[in-house]
Write a protein that binds this DNA or RNA. Structure first.
Length: 654
RNA sequence: GCUGCCAUGGCUCAGUCGGUAGAGCGUCACCUUGGUAAGGUGGAGGUCACGGGUUCGAUUCCCGUUGGCAGCUCCA
């Protein structure tokens, strides 16, 4: 048979061989590195016997898929160690993830000390270097086998496999686990590993099920790589908006005010004001008209929209629902119904559509206690909200424009490359969660998919992520911990126009039902702020900095000149302060740098006489002496164009 | 909401095997301050998150509440 390798070379063998044997035949080093194989694009175990001509790629730790096999093997070693130390623990599942692996057990929770013990046991197992072996069992035998071993979760997993599924197991020494593979050949290949943390996790990801104990770990082929990864992890955490944002006095929180109710401090308020002014002006350019609607409404409104039926647990209800004589209100969780009534205020002609309503809209959502987090999951937030009322013919163009605007906003903030796109559909197995019927959903979803394909957007599709009134396109970003959040969403709503009896008079004189596009341009300001804190590690582009320039007189004698410089800056709408403290100039510079002020203007006699300033920046360090007016022109241009200036000096240089 | 961890001056943390507390940074005052990443001295500031319990005595041990963190679930 002829085996075509990745580099195009063809190897010929007279008899069938395993992937591992072929790797060993190519080179001993490759066999040592091999984690899995890929035959004609399909990932296979190293033990897979190759019998016919094919394209074969040997996957190592440097390949994503090879890495997954490596980590999956590490998770089996973790499971064996836990079973040795805690024989009563029941095995659930243990897959590889983006940063390593985890394994879920039914057992008491683990402390850090327990994890250290488990690590020590894993070391022993790796040293024993047991050979991983694969075998298959018929369904009934497999079920009996796992019942005998008293592994109820494994029994449940096997029972859920299709009738004709091949049920495979891997063993290493005494330990056996139900597993589809692939795996490395021997335990000894896991040269460096670490158990990162332990926490609870629901069996099969459902909060109705029992909570299991999950252990997260990672592993590498070299100890140095592991060390590097752990250091990097610590470095990344320094960007965490929840730490950095508090340290930079962007926001804070107070016990007696409550969870999910952050206080934006002057620095944070300033950044959000800058973003809001920009977005409101920008949306006007894109054809939006603004509304300002109440933050709460009677229950009756939400009954019409059916938020009462589908979203009540997420709302803050005011008043006694039980008492029929009392008016019941609710703080708004969404802006939609309010803007619909503005639309409904006057009859609309097809000539007036599309109508694009925009609002800087504060919303309230009663999240559950464990879900609040910094500025990314809060109970009150302000979003660049908008609803576009369109005729069916206008859906595609308006959807496209809404996406274009969102991407323009992302690009301006330098975030475009960090996002992924998710087409969020309903869950056909949970229909009561949604308005409308299957035909409406399928039709609307097909429309959105068609639009996305026309645009040529790369996206994933996911069931069960839609809004209750329609499918949506979500723009997703990851935080420093790798956790994904929706930053921006564009939704196509086929249901609410009918519930609110919204109409337009079409060219034929008939009343017709419009469609509604719910969309945001920059998302919600709090979350976006959190995102840019992490993106820039607090070193915001100048236009977003709460303090853009600090003027530093070298001694008291130049305070007057410094204040004159300050006046000039303020006249040009530059946010600046003067440091009048009786400190040495080096100390003042250090302070300004620590506060991440992008520009420092040092002034003394030489500057005053020539009406100049000595510019230092966080971008280049010393930028030399400049005319004050030239400096102001430059920085105004940088602010106007929202330039993201590259930082050329090393951070924290001693 | 669930599992686990945590809560000591503005911030970062030390500490008390139960006898009511310390450091650094910051802040304030005075002195110093003529040039590009930490000048000096002194002072103020804490019911040790809150509420119960055990105890002669609790910041320390136990229970509860509130808040914070990680993960799960949920979501913009």
């Amino acid at each position: 048979m002829k085996i075509t390798l990745k580099d195009g070379t063809i190897k010929e063998y007279s008899s069938a061989l395993s992937v591992y044997d072929i790797a060993a035949n190519i080179s001993e080093g490759l066999a040592r590195m091999a984690c899995a194989g890929e035959i004609d694009g399909e990932v296979v175990d190293l033990r897979e016997i190759v019998r016919t001509d094919c394209n074969l790629n040997i996957l190592t730790f440097n390949d994503e898929k090879g890495k997954k096999a490596f980590w999956h093997t590490a998770s089996h070693i973790l499971a064996e160690a836990v079973k040795r130390l805690y024989p009563e623990a029941k095995l659930a599942i243990g897959p590889a993830i983006d940063t390593g692996y985890y394994y879920d057990f039914e057992c008491d929770s683990f402390t850090r000390e327990d994890l250290d013990k488990i690590e020590a046991e894993m070391k022993k197992i790796i040293k024993e270097n047991a050979v991983f072996e694969k075998f298959e069992l018929p369904r009934e035998v497999a079920i009996n086998f796992m019942e005998e071993k008293n592994e109820p979760y494994k029994v449940e997993l096997i029972k859920d496999l299709p009738e004709d599924a091949i049920i495979s197991f891997y063993s290493q020494g005494e330990f056996v686990d139900l597993c589809a593979g692939p795996h490395l050949m021997k335990a000894g290949a896991i040269k460096a590993f670490k158990l990162i943390s332990s926490s609870g996790a629901y069996w099969r990801g459902s909060s109705d099920n029992k909570m299991l104990t999950r252990v997260y770990g990672t592993a590498f082929t070299k100890k140095a790589d592991l060390e590097e990864y752990l250091v990097k992890l610590e470095e990344i955490k320094k960007r965490d908006h929840n730490k950095l944002g508090r340290e930079m006095e962007i926001f804070t929180s107070v016990d007696v005010i409550g969870q999910g109710l952050p206080l934006l401090m002057p620095n944070g308020a300033k950044i959000i004001q800058t973003l809001q002014r920009w977005i409101e002006d920008e949306e006007e350019k894109w054809g939006y008209i603004r509304t300002k609607t109440p933050l709460m409404a009677k229950k009756d409104l939400y009954v019409i929209s059916d938020h009462w039926g589908h979203y009540k647990e997420g709302m803050f209800v005011l008043g006694d629902e039980e008492n029929e004589d009392e008016e019941v209100f609710a703080l708004r969780p969404m802006t939609c119904p309010f803007q619909y009534y503005i639309y409904k205020q006057t009859p609309k002609s097809y000539r007036e559509l599309p109508i694009r309503y925009g609002e800087t809209s504060t919303l309230f959502r009663n999240e559950e206690s464990g879900e609040m987090h910094g500025l990314t999951r809060v109970r009150q937030f302000t979003i660049s909200e908008g609803h576009i009322v369109v005729t069916p013919d206008q859906i595609e163009e308006e959807f496209r424009k809404a996406l274009e605007l969102a991407r323009y906003c992302l690009t301006t903030l330098g975030l475009e490359e960090d996002v992924t796109y998710r087409f969020s559909k309903w869950d056909p197995n949970n229909k009561q969660k949604y308005l409308g019927d299957e035909a409406q959903w399928e039709k609307t979803q097909d429309k959105v998919r068609e639009i996305l394909n026309h645009i040529g957007l790369e996206f994933t599709e996911e069931d069960g992520e839609a809004a209750f009134y329609g499918p949506k396109l979500d723009i997703q970003a990851k935080n420093v911990y790798g956790k994904e959040d929706t930053m921006i969403t564009i939704q196509l709503d086929f249901a609410l126009a009918e519930r609110f009896d919204m109409t337009y008079i079409d060219a034929d004189g008939e009343k017709k039902r419009p469609f509604i596009i719910h969309r945001t341009s920059i998302g919600c300001y709090e979350r976006t702020l959190a995102w840019i804190i992490e993106k820039f590690a607090g070193l915001f582009p100048t236009w977003l900095c709460p303090e853009q320039v600090r003027v530093l007189p070298i001694s008291e004698k130049y305070h007057d000149y410094a204040n004159k410089v300050l006046e000039h800056l303020k006249d040009n709408c530059i946010s600046a302060t003067v440091d009048e403290r009786a400190e040495k100039i080096g100390y003042k510079i250090r302070e300004a740098r620590l506060k991440r002020v992008p520009y420092m203007l040092v002034v003394g006699q030489n500057e005053e006489e020539a009406n100049k300033v000595s510019v230092r920046s966080r971008y280049k360090g010393d930028e030399g002496q400049q005319n004050l007016d030239d400096f102001i022109n430059d920085i105004c241009k940088e602010i106007r164009t929202k330039e993201i200036r590259k930082i050329e000096v090393e951070e924290n240089k001693k």
